[in-house]
Design a protein around this nucleic acid. Structure first.
Lengths: 339, 339
DNA sequence: GATTTCCCCGACATCGATGTCAAGAAACTG
DNA sequence: CAGTTTCTTGACATCGATGTCGGGGAAATC
């Protein structure tokens, strides 16, 4: 089937291709009657402009790049879905580009993509969004960037985030309110800036309650299940045990929970375990995890919105949208038994 | 920074743009010395051809579409990673396009994308790959398609798959070998063709063992956690209980497991529970799930490979790559206690 | 009524690559 | 050695849209 071009539309509407272009892009200086009649023909013929030709001539593209370190994690996948939905609504398309710093050729790969695709915008997620060198590359190629939850270089680009620190504080206060005093904390992957923010929020709440967790109650994890399990084993093999464990994400919280179960430690009766993210798996555990619901879908959605609108109005301050989180209380946290 | 074009390269190499194009695309009829010297200039200048211009003039595109119903599921995410890796290696880029049959405008959305992007290939995953009407649309737009694990219209397009039926039979035989006779089965979402194949594999093994599971031991699920949980509750509230449950995927198996735990039924001592997929969550359960490892990463990888190579050699039979699975025995299955 | 201004609209060049074709050189044929 | 085929190469048109610019007509100004 031969695709319909702007010429076909122009011919049938009895105007020049340029006028059709004007109508499509909502430019001024077209008589209302003509505008309407052209719009009708466009609809009738079900005409869609070719994205390549458009990108080529206008050098702005209708592709938005979504850059991930690991597109498999549930975190990334939900952001992706939000981004896809909004991109669709705005007539853009999403190109997924993985970036792995482990590979020494990541720079060339990235430059390749930028050359080849002439992206109309890029969305960077944690942890790759914190590398100044990477932001420089985007700058050099004039690709507008929006970052999701960056932790460094805060003033450089527009961003979309939630307040991890406040959320972690809320969660810690939830545990304190249940009577817990001996609360252990499992830190996240230090390359993700959110790890530090969550730790600070926890620390804030503890300090405000006049407590300061000793070093043996603070474990280093990497956001993955296994590290949570290891942290759990280390914590539960000590005496006395903490009465609550706050893991920096759900996957690690699940690891802690399984370490508890394998030692016959009842959750939440003997120990409360809470996570962060409200990943799908939070509801697949038993008991279900108390956690913080991250607005991931909305983060992806807003990021696309921002990167496209920014395109026009470039240096209007430093847009930063902060999205609300939610403390979700489920079965894995309960009152402190020891007092 | 002004991008480098083919002209710049041509000028510096002292040849015509067309010759540079020939070298880049590996066409014949270029003197070896010239070919080499041009290649050197290309490398020196770090030149990358603009994908838009290429797509526009040659009307073959360097974009491959990956079509999902739900890009969030772990299943889809792993396929996506495999596809991304291979696309990168072959100099293509992946555009993700969600399709939801629930939306009545899915046809227009799809046609929009095809018009706008002129895809060089499309990869369809289950369940959307089984709809003839959808395949027709791709045909009409001359977009070569590769399907991952299709269940219908088997002769229409090249495909990549694993043998669900054999795998399910293997799993059932594993349970039979452990001494189980009263095995319940939780079926998957009927819109996924794999559901039927897994059921048949289970049925094969049972029949071969001279058994036929009564209707009350066969539950209908939809591949989601909740449906597994519900099925588990229904199964465990009956007397006698089955001694093993085979759920058609891991997520449902987890649901069954949690239903068991909430009733103090020990796994695997009192009941064995097995899944299918080897999703990440299979290792996050306690005990860890016995399951079938699907070669999802490889499926994505092979699909991209196939869709691109097919482009050249079009009607060479009906390529169908079948990838190996693996039975992964973990803690959730054990010998039958009742005999 | 003459001049200026503004609004519409289309002709044409352009973006950056590849397809076509023909010319010239080289290699082969008889 | 003339004639034919094959190999190299570049000029030019093309893909499908948008940017630039200029012309014609209506409205506004003097």
């Amino acid at each position: 089937m031969k695709p319909i071009t702007i010429k076909d539309v122009a011919e049938r509407a009895g105007v020049s291709p340029k006028t059709v272009s004007r109508v499509i892009n909502g430019e001024a200086h077209v008589r209302p009657e003509i505008r309407e009649s052209v719009a009708r023909v466009v609809a009738d013929m079900n005409y869609r402009p070719n994205a390549f030709a458009r990108g080529l001539s206008s050098s702005r593209s209708f592709l938005v790049g979504l850059f991930f370190d690991d597109p498999v994690s549930g975190y990334a996948a939900t952001i992706q879905r939000g981004a896809l939905e909004q991109a669709r609504a705005m007539g853009r398309h999403i190109v997924i580009e993985p970036i792995t710093f482990q590979r020494s050729d990541w720079r060339e790969r990235l430059v390749d993509s930028l050359h080849a695709l002439r992206l109309g915008g890029a969305i960077l997620t944690s942890p790759i969004c914190d590398r100044a060198e990477l932001l420089d590359i985007f700058d050099r190629h004039d690709v507008p960037v929006v970052r999701i939850a960056p932790g460094a270089e805060l003033e450089r680009t527009p961003q979309v985030r939630m307040d991890d620190r406040d959320a972690a504080r809320d969660m810690a206060e939830h545990l304190l309110a249940l009577g817990h005093r001996d609360i252990a904390f499992v830190r996240g992957n230090p390359t993700h800036s959110a790890s530090e923010r969550r730790w600070l929020g926890f620390h804030d709440a503890m300090t405000a309650a006049g407590l300061s967790p000793p070093p043996e109650r603070v474990m280093q994890g990497d956001f993955r299940f296994r590290s949570g399990f290891d942290a759990g084993e280390a914590l539960f093999d000590r005496h006395p045990r903490p009465t609550a464990v706050f893991a920096s994400n759900d996957e690690m919280a699940l690891g802690v929970m399984i370490a508890a179960m394998s030692r016959q430690i009842a959750v939440p009766r003997a120990v409360s375990i809470v996570g962060f993210d409200d990943a799908e798996i939070a509801r697949m555990a038993w008991p279900q995890l108390t956690t913080i619901r991250q607005p991931n879908y909305a983060l992806g959605w807003e990021a696309v919105d921002l990167v496209i609108h920014q395109h026009g109005t470039n240096t209007t301050g430093d847009p930063c949208r902060i999205l609300p989180y939610e403390l979700v209380i489920r079965g894995s946290s309960g009152p402190c038994a020891v007092s």
